[in-house]
Structure formats: C-alpha cells, structure tokens
C-alpha cells in the first residue's frame, strides 16, 4: 500500500526542474456550519519547496491546510466546496485514509501517542497500516528519526515513552512519525508555536533538509520564520487569500496594501 504512489521526479543533476504543483487549491470555500471561514481561496503548493502561509489569528490558515489532507472534515459540522488537487487528481475522489498517507501533517502542539515508546510512535504509521517486516520497520524508523534530526538524541532510549521527551524533541518525533510513511507532502500547522527559540531553530534546519525530497507547507504566526524557511509565501486575511508569491517579493515589495500593512506590523 505504502509503495503505491506517483514516481518521484528525480532530476538528473544540471537539468532544470520545471516547477510543478504537488497540491493545488481552486476556489475553495470552507466552514464549520456557520459563516464561511475560507472564501474563494486558490493556491498552488509547488513541489519540493516550502510554501509558508501567514496571516493574523483566525484568518483561516489552519483550516486551509486541514482541507488539503481532508482533516477538515473530521471536525463536526465541517463544510467544503471547491477543488483540491494532489498531482492533478481531485482529492475528494480519493479515500481520505490513502490521501493522508500521501499528505502528512504535523500539529501545533506536539502530540506523540501517549501509550507508545519513541520507536513505536515512529513505527505507528507503518505497523498500523499492515507493514509486518520488522527489519524494514526498524530501518524506516531509524531513517525517519535521522531525517528529523532526532536519532542521536534518542538512539539509546528507543523503548522510552515518547511523551517523556522535551517539547522540541516531541515535535521532531512527530515529524519523524509523519515522515515514516513517506508522504509526498507534509503540512505543518504552526509547528513551533509551543517551542522555545532553540527548539524552533532545530526544526527550521530540519525543514530545510527534508524539503529536498518532499513538498512542505507551513502555517506560521511568525513572519521571520516564513522568511527564513520558505520559497513562497501566501498572505491570508479574514478567510481570503490576499496575495501569494516568492517570499522575497512578499516581504520586500508586496503588491497589496494589506500585505504591506501586515508585514510592517501596522496590524495583526
């Protein structure tokens, strides 16, 4: 099951890879039964790049990325209209379970499984999806922990409970857990908002590392973070996408006045 996915477009060195969208949103409207939280949002999330979504609290950033792997519909009363494409295919036509193996998610607060050890946390996505080959699981767990820059800190205590780690380590554990199922894209919903600056720095470093192989979309409150890690930035305000473009452009010469006001700290 886990191997069923589109080929990774590995480019030979020197060739120019055309920018293609891993995820694309067209005319998305979403809400929770009351007034719409998102209105006519269209956005491309390009392959093997970091797309940052910024905007003030309550602007719909989290709702937007939760739509991308259909975690939005888990919440009571959730409604959704519009198109979301993964590699050109409408995700509403996919089984949400299979979609989520392709498009992983890391949440605002670290949420390791309390009943599981560090190893079992990372292995969970594989083992609970029927991978029985223990050697393979062990190999992927190590690979994922290395990719999440956590291996050296936990390699001697893989059997210890995941919730015993520090907040920053727990969040890297959650990233490792999401990486273990080898998704095409990883969505991060303010992954550093509960962490101190040092832990945040380590997460940002590892994001720059893992974007070499997968597509990332990060929601953040922190504009410096968006500037540090992303190639492209989208600015949202009150449920609408105001502007999206290369991060440099958004932060230096945004085309919309509202973006400029937000970036320069006039509100938000």
């Amino acid at each position: 099951m886990l191997t069923e996915k589109p080929p990774q477009h590995a480019a030979a060195p020197g060739t120019v890879v055309p920018e293609r969208a891993t995820l694309e949103v067209r005319g998305l409207a979403a809400g929770y039964g009351g007034p719409l939280v998102l209105r006519s949002v269209s956005l491309q999330i390009l392959e093997r790049q970091v797309t940052a979504i910024i905007g003030p609290s309550g602007c719909g950033k989290s709702t937007l990325i939760r739509c991308l792997n259909r975690m939005h519909e888990v919440l009571p009363g959730a409604t959704l209209e519009g198109e979301i494409l993964l590699d050109g295919r409408d995700v509403m036509g996919l089984d949400p379970v299979l979609l989520r193996r392709q498009v992983g998610m890391v949440f605002q607060r670290p949420n390791p499984f309390p009943s599981m050890s560090i190893f079992d946390n990372v292995a969970a996505g594989l083992v609970l999806n029927g991978v029985r080959d223990r050697a393979l699981v062990a190999e992927k767990v190590e690979g994922s922990l290395r990719a999440a820059a956590l291996w050296d800190e936990v390699k001697d205590k893989l059997k210890a409970p995941g919730v015993g780690l520090s907040g920053g380590q727990q969040q890297r554990l959650c990233i490792a857990r999401a990486l273990a199922v080898e998704p095409r894209a990883l969505l991060l919903d303010e992954p550093c908002s509960a962490l101190d600056p040092i832990a945040t720095g380590r997460i940002e470093e590892l994001l720059l590392e893992i974007k070499k192989t997968l597509t990332l979309c990060i929601v953040t409150h922190n504009m410096q973070q968006a500037a540090r890690v992303s190639e492209r930035t989208a600015f949202m305000l009150m449920g609408e996408l105001v502007e999206v473009g290369p991060t440099d452009t958004i932060f230096t010469k945004p085309s919309d006045k509202k973006t400029e006001d937000y970036i320069t700290g006039r509100f938000g």
């Binding site: 989520r100 193996r101 949440f107 969970a124 996505g125 857990r177 199922v181």
Partner: peptide
C-alpha cells in the same frame, strides 16, 4: 491523539 493518528492515514 486521534487527529495525529488519522493524519497518518490510519
């Protein structure tokens, strides 16, 4: 905890 597990495609 439920969300984390669902998001893994379980």
């Amino acid at each position: 905890v439920r969300e984390a597990a669902l998001a893994l495609g379980i």
